[in-house]
């Protein structure tokens, strides 16, 4: 198989088949092709007999499509990544930012013992001040954020180890 596309929260398994003499088809046989902008005709995509005007831009595994007045972000995941499952992303003690922002305050140091719910880091993002708390009891292993630092979503803010030191 050729991976999966995530579209508006739903996974779609891909099974593109070769068209005879080059080209590509959907599993039901309809041929598909990208249509570059030509003169006055805008860029688009063709599926079987139908033509859709579409603007497409790609960055890594994100395919952005502006189609019929609406914008979609389609994410491609390889077969392997899709099926790898829960194994990915379960860092036991890393706490990640839920949204991009900047660090406003760091309330702990490495070595501090924290209980579930203790405030560890305060971040600010577009007039939203959020306190990031320890998800479970543990000891702070490292704080990866410093006051004033900007960060993107999913960046690790701090790490801790479970239980007693």
């Amino acid at each position: 198989m050729q991976g999966y596309l995530l579209i508006e929260g739903e996974s779609h398994e891909l099974a593109i088949v070769p068209g005879a003499g080059g080209g590509y088809r959907l599993p039901d046989g309809r041929s598909i092709a990208l249509l570059p902008a030509l003169g006055d005709a805008p860029a688009g995509v063709r599926v079987g007999d139908r033509r859709y005007d579409a603007e497409i831009a790609v960055a890594a595994d994100s395919i952005w499509v502006h189609l019929d007045g609406t914008t979609y972000e389609v994410t491609w995941r390889s077969d392997v990544d899709h099926h790898a499952g829960v194994a990915i992303g379960t860092d036991s003690g890393a706490v990640r930012a839920q949204m991009p922002g900047a660090v406003v305050a760091v309330l702990v140091q490495p070595g501090d013992r924290v209980s579930a719910g203790d405030a560890v880091v305060v971040i600010e993002s577009m007039k939203l001040e959020t306190t990031i708390r320890a998800p479970r009891d543990g000891v702070v292993a490292a704080v990866d954020a410093s006051v004033g630092q900007s960060f993107e979503r999913d960046v690790i803010l701090f790490e801790f180890v479970d239980g007693e030191p």
């Binding site: 859709y52 189609l67 979609y72």
Partner: peptide, 9 residues
Amino acid sequence: ALIAAAVLS
């Protein structure tokens, strides 16, 4: 159309 656009890109 989205699937086609994505797959071809």
